[in-house]
């Protein structure tokens, strides 16, 4: 199935990578994506470490594959991803992927994630992490987030908090994302659903390290997401 992705398809694919303080982790991510033949739009989210320098070091190796934008202050993964989605339009892409830049997602999954888009079966894909791969604490938190996404946004997915997603350019033009932080994951799914965009779930590998675990959906973030969902549901 994966060999149906041609170099042309890859050339028309742009991976959006929001990066906040990822200096120690982002380099292998960028290089593995570039090695696979995909293009990237990397958005430095006002990092306080030398993430931007590290990104530019990688850009030296792959000057045509890597496009870099930088938010002057930290505004959260939602804004960074939105910036990436806006920036990517300048390059006339056909398929747009967004991935986490901390190394928890593998570039090996890219082919599988865009395959449903290339073959025309779907216009959006969410990369789902198998629940059994997740550490226990994450597993429970994620199940709760999935349930909340079902209650508030009326969509049933097996991993609502995934940062690995792909859309066609048509689908991207239809959806509008306003979330500032981690709510973006659920909001993306809601937008896909509300706009009747056909989507597929693709199982992806997730590499959990103590570092990647410190970020992402912890209980504080979860409560914030819940409040934002309620606000959306009630007032928007």
């Amino acid at each position: 199935m994966e060999n149906r992705i041609t170099a042309e398809d890859k050339n028309a694919t742009f991976v959006v990578l929001p990066a906040y303080n990822e200096a120690t982790r982002i380099q292998p991510v960028i290089e593995s994506i570039a090695e696979k033949g995909y293009n990237m739009v990397i958005v430095n989210d006002g990092s306080s470490d030398n993430t931007l320098e590290v990104i530019l070091d990688s850009k030296k190796k792959y000057p045509n594959r890597v496009h870099v934008y930088s938010l002057i202050i930290n505004r959260g993964v939602g804004i960074a991803t939105q910036t990436g989605f806006d920036a990517v339009l300048k390059f006339n892409p056909k398929y747009i992927v967004s991935m986490d830049s901390d190394g928890q997602h593998s570039a090996d999954d890219l082919d599988a994630v865009i395959e449903p888009l290339v073959s025309g079966r779907a216009e959006a894909v969410i990369g789902v992490r198998p629940l059994e791969d997740m550490p226990k604490s994450r597993n429970i938190a994620n199940s709760i987030m999935n349930l909340l996404t079902r209650i508030f946004y009326d969509v049933d997915v097996s991993d609502s908090q995934t940062g690995f997603r792909a859309v066609t350019i048509d689908a991207l033009n239809k959806i509008s994302i306003n979330a500032q932080g981690y709510l973006i994951s659920s909001e993306f799914i809601r937008e896909i659903n509300d706009n009747d965009i056909p989507f597929e779930e693709v199982i992806i590998k997730t590499i959990y390290t103590p570092e990647t675990q410190a970020k992402g959906t912890n209980y504080k973030v979860a409560i914030k997401i819940l409040l934002q969902m309620m606000k959306h549901k009630l007032f928007d």
Partner: peptide
């Protein structure tokens, strides 16, 4: 408003290698 400004500034300034 701040998000809009920050986004706009970033979008108008793609970072090239020579910039840095």
């Amino acid at each position: 408003n701040m998000n809009k400004i920050v986004k706009e500034v970033a979008l108008n300034n793609e970072i090239q290698l020579d910039d840095k």
